[in-house]
Amino acid sequence: MPEEQGFVEKLIASLENKNRKKVISKGEFLIKEGDTERNIYLIESGAVRIFYLSEYEEHIIRFGYEGSLITSLSSFLKGTPSEFYIEAIRKTSMKVISKEDFARLVNENSENLRQYTNLLETLISQQIDREIDLLITSPTERLNRVLKRSPNLFQHVPLKYIASYLRMTPETLSRIRNS
């Protein structure tokens, strides 16, 4: 995705002079349910998980690690309270891009706007892939689809979290991985 890479690089470059960085340790939250998201984060090292909390358990919907852009998206876009938590899986350092800076960059010229549109299109496709993931009954097939998209997932994220993302028990995940 060279074009999006360019956009992200531009984002970073536009931050260099402001240099807003953030480091959180394992178990700390970037945002909790009910807070309003005002930033996008570009992860430089470490890993985070985004999860939804139900009455009974946490459901992981997305991971972020080195190179990922991450935010509680609908809260960021609409200014509504976040439905999700973002928590560091281990010590994580990131660059912080405020909503205002982001909007300014996107609207700077038509080229940026086009790249932003590309980014959104990629995001929508990813969401559809994820929707199909959740409809697939076979645990093995679910794992294969995710590994195709993110071959290095197991290097960044502990197995128990990947199991939650795949909606299966850690036992099932390690069984199908070993078979």
Partner: peptide, 17 residues
Amino acid sequence: SGLPITTIDRFLKQQEL
């Protein structure tokens, strides 16, 4: 050790249910 703060949010959701 170390129960997370989500323990409270989970309880409040159970109360709503």
